[in-house]
Write a protein that binds this DNA or RNA. Structure first.
Lengths: 194, 194, 194, 194
DNA sequence: AATGAATGAGGATTCATTCAT
DNA sequence: GATGAATGAATCCTCATTCAT
C-alpha cells in the first residue's frame, strides 16, 4: 500500500505557497512552477492536486477567507454586548493573522481575480455578505434604522484600509487601522444617539 | 510629406483603448494587440509610440489621474468656504467622468500595477498626496488638530467606495457614494464641534 | 495468500479496454490512465502487466488478430470444397465478432501503429500472409495460374472494405461487405473459367 | 511598407512540410516544431499562419486532395469515351504525383484524422463522393444498373490498394496498382455484358 | 508614419513511467 | 498484487518585441 493522505497536506502547502508568492510579487502573474517550487514539489504535482492554476488561486482565496472567518468566530465567542460584537468584528479584520504583509498583498489580487473568475467572485460576495451581517447584528440594537447605512460605510472603510495597506511599505499597522475604524464607528453612533 | 503631430493623437488613442480594455476585462492580462486593435492600429505602432506595454499602462494610469486632477481643479475654482472645498473634492472623486464603469474597473488594476511598477507606484503616491492635501486644506479651518485623522479616514473611505464599486455589476452610483462620504464628513465634523 | 493467476485476467482486461478506447476515440492518442480506468485498475498496474503503452497496443492488436484467426479456423473446419473455403474466409473476415464498431475503429489505428512499431508491423505482415495463403489455397484449384492475382485483388478489396467502414457512422454492415467480396470473387472466377 | 504576401508562401511551405513529416514518420504524432523546422521557420510563425496544429493537418489533407483533384480534372480533359473516363480516373489515382511515398504515408493518417476532426471528415467525404460520381459517370453507359455496385467495389479496391501500399517498404508501384484496378473493372464489365 | 513578418522566451498542462509502501 | 504519490520531459500555444520595407 502506498503512502496515503498526501492530498490535504499538498493542497495546504500549495495554497500557502500561492498566498506567499502572490503577496510577495503583488501580482497574479506568478507561475505554477514558482508556487510549486516554494511548496516543495514539481509543477506537475501541483496540477495533479489542483487541476489548474486558477483553481489554485481560488483555493488560496478560500483559505484566506476561512482564516478570517475562524478569527471572527473565535472573537465573537466571548462577546456579550452589541458594542463588543462590533469591536470584535473590527479587531478580527485587522488581527495579526489576517493583516499580514502577504495576506494583504494577496488580498488586493483576489479582488482582481474576482473580476474574471466566477468562483472567486462568489467567495468575495460571501465575504462581503458575512461582514455586512456581522456588522448589522451589532449595529441594529445601537443605531436602529441607521444601522444599514453605518454598516455600509464601515464596510467600505475597512476595505479601503486594506487597500491602502497594500501599497504602503513595511509591516501593516493593525492597531492603527482598528483605531480608525473604531473612531468612525463611535462617531457615527454618537451622532445617532443625539 | 509625413503627417504631422501624429504622436499625441496615437498616444491618446492607445491610452483610451488601454483603459477600455483593462476596464472591460477587469485584468491587466490584456495583450498589446488587443489594445492596438481597439485603437485602430498595428501592435508594432503601439510599441513605436510607447516603447513597452508597461509604459502604456502607466500612460493610461496617468491619463485617468490627470482627468481626475482636472476635475478637481475645475471644481475648486468656484469655491469660497472650506466646507465647499471639501464637498467639491468629494464630488469630483465620484463625478461621472471618473466614476465610469471602465475607469473604476481599470482603477483597481492600477493599484495592482503599482505593486510591481515603480512608475505606477509614484503616480499613485501623487494621487494620494493630492487627495490628502486637498482634504486637509478644507479640514484644518473646520476641525483643527483633528484634520489629519479625518483626512485619513475620509481618504480610506473614498478608496473603499471605489474598490466596492469595481465588484458590483451595473453602472456605478456616484450620488450614493457622494452621500456616504459627505455623511462621514459631517458626522466627523459634528463631533469635533462639540 | 496472493491471488493466483491474476496476470492473464488483468492482461485480458487491459487488452479489451485498449481496443474499446481506441475504437471509441478513433485514435491512438489514448492515455494509459483511460485504458486502465476502463479496465478497472490503476495505471501503475497497467504498466506492471505490460511494461509500456506500446506493448499494450501491440497486445491489443494481437488479440484482435487472434480472434480473427480463431474465427477463420473454425469456419474452415467444416469445409470440403475450395469454393466453400473461400467463402468461409471471406465470411470470417466480416463476421460479427470481427466486424464490430470498436474493432474496425481500432483496426485502422493498428495500421498506423504498424508504421512505427516493428512488433505491430510483424503482426500485420502475419495477418496479410495468412489471408493470402488461405485465399490461395482455395483459389489454386479453381483459377490455376490466375490464383495469385485474384488473391491480391481480393485481399486489397477486403482491406478497402474495412477502411471504408471505419469512416461510416452506425454499425458495420457485414452481410453487405460479404456480398461485395463474393461478387468480386465470382466475377473473377467466371472470367477465368471461360 | 513591409514585406508582403508571405502568407501563401508560408502556408504552402508548412503544408508540404507537414505532409513530408507525417509521411516520413507514419504518424500524426509530429510536433509543430518539427514541421516548422522543415518548413524553415519558427513554430510561432507556424501558429501565426495556421492557428493550430489541427488546422495545419487539415490544410495538408486539403492540399493532397486538391492535387488529386487537379490530376483527375486534367486526365478527364482529353477523354471521349466512357471507358477512357474510367481509365483516366483510375490512372490519376495512382499517378506519380499522388502515389508518392510521403503522400501515401500521410494518406492513411488522414483517415485516422477524419475520425476525430470534423473538418477532416468532411474533406474525406468530399473525396469519396467525387471518386464515386466520377466512376459512376463512366460506368452507367457501360454497365447500366450494375454501375452503382461496380463503383462501390472499385472504390473500395482503390482505397485498399492505397492502404496496402502504406505498409510496404520501397517506392509505391503505381502501374501495378493500376493494372489490378483495371483488371477488376474489365472483369466486372465483361460479366455485365454477357 | 506604418505594418506585415518574424521569433525567442516562456508558461500551462499532459502523460508515460517509476517507486515506496 | 496493487496503488497513490511523484516527476521529467515534452508539447502546444501565446505574446511582447524587433525589423525590414
Amino acid at each position: 500500500m502506498p503512502k496515503l493522505g498526501m492530498q490535504p497536506i499538498r493542497r495546504r502547502a500549495l495554497v500557502n505557497a500561492a498566498i506567499v508568492e502572490i503577496g510577495r510579487t503583488g501580482s497574479l502573474e506568478v507561475t505554477v512552477s514558482q508556487i510549486a517550487r516554494r511548496a516543495g514539489m514539481s509543477s506537475a504535482l501541483a496540477h495533479h492536486y489542483f487541476g489548474s492554476k486558477e483553481e489554485m488561486f481560488v483555493g488560496a482565496m478560500r483559505h484566506v477567507l476561512s482564516l478570517y472567518g475562524a478569527e471572527v468566530r473565535a472573537a465573537l465567542a466571548g462577546v456579550t454586548t452589541p458594542y463588543e460584537r462590533l469591536r470584535a468584528v473590527i479587531e478580527a479584520s485587522f488581527s495579526p493573522a489576517n493583516f499580514r504583509r502577504e495576506a494583504v498583498g494577496a488580498w488586493l489580487n483576489f479582488w482582481v481575480l474576482a473580476q474574471t473568475v466566477p468562483g472567486a467572485r462568489r467567495l468575495l460576495a460571501v465575504y462581503q455578505g458575512r461582514l455586512r451581517s456581522n456588522l448589522l447584528a451589532g449595529l441594529r440594537p445601537l443605531a436602529g434604522e441607521s444601522a444599514a447605512s453605518i454598516a455600509g460605510s464601515l464596510g467600505a472603510l475597512i476595505d479601503g484600509l486594506y487597500l491602502r495597506e497594500a501599497l504602503k511599505t513595511g509591516e501593516p499597522d493593525g492597531p492603527a487601522a482598528v483605531a480608525m475604524a473604531i473612531d468612525h464607528l463611535e462617531t457615527a453612533l454618537a451622532r445617532v444617539r443625539r
